[in-house]
């Protein structure tokens, strides 16, 4: 059973639809107990960094997310679910992120259209089962900010948008992507399927 964290703003229905389509069992929940009991945790996000952290705090979800990651339970963050794993974001100065990984979240320079909306390709920076064979495949992005991890070893995929940025990270059972696998056609579904099996 995968617990999909519902903190009030995320696009949880899309993720649930994709998992249902793949016949993977999941529940949408904001209950920390259910999150701790699940085999895997999926954390989709939309909205702003600050609002997300505020909702997570109000719903007392932070300890459950940290525990999930500390115990190395399979975890998948999507979009803002990637960004809040870091320490801080230019989007919401002064707001602390989950700080699971060192580094910050930066805004795209206004050289290209911001937000980046559309399909962009990923380059695999290391080998991992979840993304194997998906080098140069296209995924759907909607964002104005990107993560800059201090520990380069966690970089799983990168993408070019007026410069190379980190579009996916992984460390043991922790995965997080800037793009939306639930909206990225069959290649996106493939990532969700592999996560469900990992």
């Amino acid at each position: 059973m995968i617990a999909i964290i519902d903190y009030g703003a995320g696009n949880v229905a899309s993720v649930k639809n994709a998992l249902d389509f793949l016949k993977v069992k999941s529940i949408i929940t904001d209950d920390p107990k259910k999150i701790l009991l699940a085999d895997k945790v999926l954390f989709p996000g939309v909205g702003s960094f600050g609002d997300t952290m505020k909702s997570l705090r109000e719903k007392r979800l932070i300890p459950a997310i940290k525990k999930t990651i500390e115990t190395n339970k399979p975890f998948l963050g999507i979009c803002l679910g990637l960004q809040v794993l870091f320490e801080e974001s230019e989007e919401s100065p002064g707001i602390e992120g989950l700080g699971i990984f060192k580094g910050k979240v930066k805004r795209f320079k206004k050289k290209l259209k911001v937000p980046q909306i559309g399909w962009n390709s990923i380059v695999l920076e290391k080998q991992d089962g979840t993304v194997q064979g998906l080098n140069n495949k296209f995924f759907y992005f909607v964002h104005s900010y990107y993560v800059v991890p201090q520990d380069k070893s966690i970089i799983l995929t990168t993408t070019d948008y007026g410069g190379i940025f980190v579009s996916g990270i992984s460390k043991e059972n922790i995965y997080a992507f800037q793009f939306h696998p639930e909206k990225s056609g069959d290649d996106g579904l493939e990532i969700l399927k592999r996560f469900a099996r990992c």
Binding site: A13, N17, A18, Y140, K183, S184, G185
Partner: peptide
């Protein structure tokens, strides 16, 4: 549509 189509 949302249950069967996985593009925006």
């Amino acid at each position: 549509v949302a249950k069967q189509i996985f593009i925006p």
